[in-house]
């Protein structure tokens, strides 16, 4: 039997992690967490998470970077903002989850073949290119990226139903002034560095 070590030594912690996260939008108040657990008890996704939201905040405060960024929890946050309105310390927990998502994508440490991070990135690509989202193409692009043709096939009956009621089309939605949008997004990216 393999015995796994469950403790972490102090030298293995990332002491800069808290400051790194505190610099990100909406995370400035994270120090004020009193670990009361109102977030975990109000979260509709908590039962599906590997770590409840309270623990994620504790990970950040104590330098458990890997545990926070590699958790499924951050990708199960559906942005319902229930924890955020209930938090007695007024921490913007949903924004903290967003910050961790961005960090996990940046450092490419999200769980492999997990759909939500792939969906988010594919949607951003579509928007940056065309200025609008096209539901059908978003789903197609996601399944291509996930290398999951079976998943796409399973969506076919729903697609047919939506086509029948005129709620889905093959057309790619685009704005007219794509040039302006692209210049804007490039400028923002350059200057944010």
């Amino acid at each position: 039997m393999d015995i796994q070590r469950k403790v972490k030594f102090e030298e293995e912690l990332d002491k800069n992690f808290l400051d790194e996260i505190k610099d990100m939008s909406g995370c400035e108040e994270i120090d004020k967490c009193i670990q009361c657990g109102a977030c975990s008890s109000s979260c509709p996704m908590a039962v599906y998470m590997d770590h409840p939201p309270r623990k994620i905040i504790s990970f950040i405060k104590n330098g458990f970077k890997e545990e926070a960024l590699k958790s499924f929890t951050i990708w199960l946050c559906a942005s319902c903002y229930t924890c955020q309105v209930r938090c007695p310390a007024k921490i913007k927990i949903t924004d903290v989850m967003y910050a961790l998502k961005r960090k996990a994508i940046e450092e490419k440490v999200y769980p492999n073949r997990l759909q939500p991070p792939v969906l988010a990135q594919e949607m951003c690509k579509l928007i940056a290119k065309n200025g609008r989202n096209s539901e059908l193409w978003l789903v197609v692009n996601m399944y291509i990226k996930l290398k999951n043709p079976l998943g796409m096939l399973k969506m076919a009956p729903l697609g047919i139903n939506l086509m029948k009621t005129g709620r889905m089309s093959l057309k790619k939605e685009k704005i007219k002034n794509r040039k302006q949008l692209r210049t804007l997004l490039n400028e923002v990216k350059e200057n944010a560095k």
Binding site: Q121, C124, N133, K189
Partner: peptide, 15 residues
């Protein structure tokens, strides 16, 4: 143009 939805906050919040 598209508002960016929840997707862009998870990828690039300044964009």
């Amino acid at each position: 143009n598209c508002c960016g939805a929840t997707a862009y906050f998870a990828v690039d919040d300044t964009i």
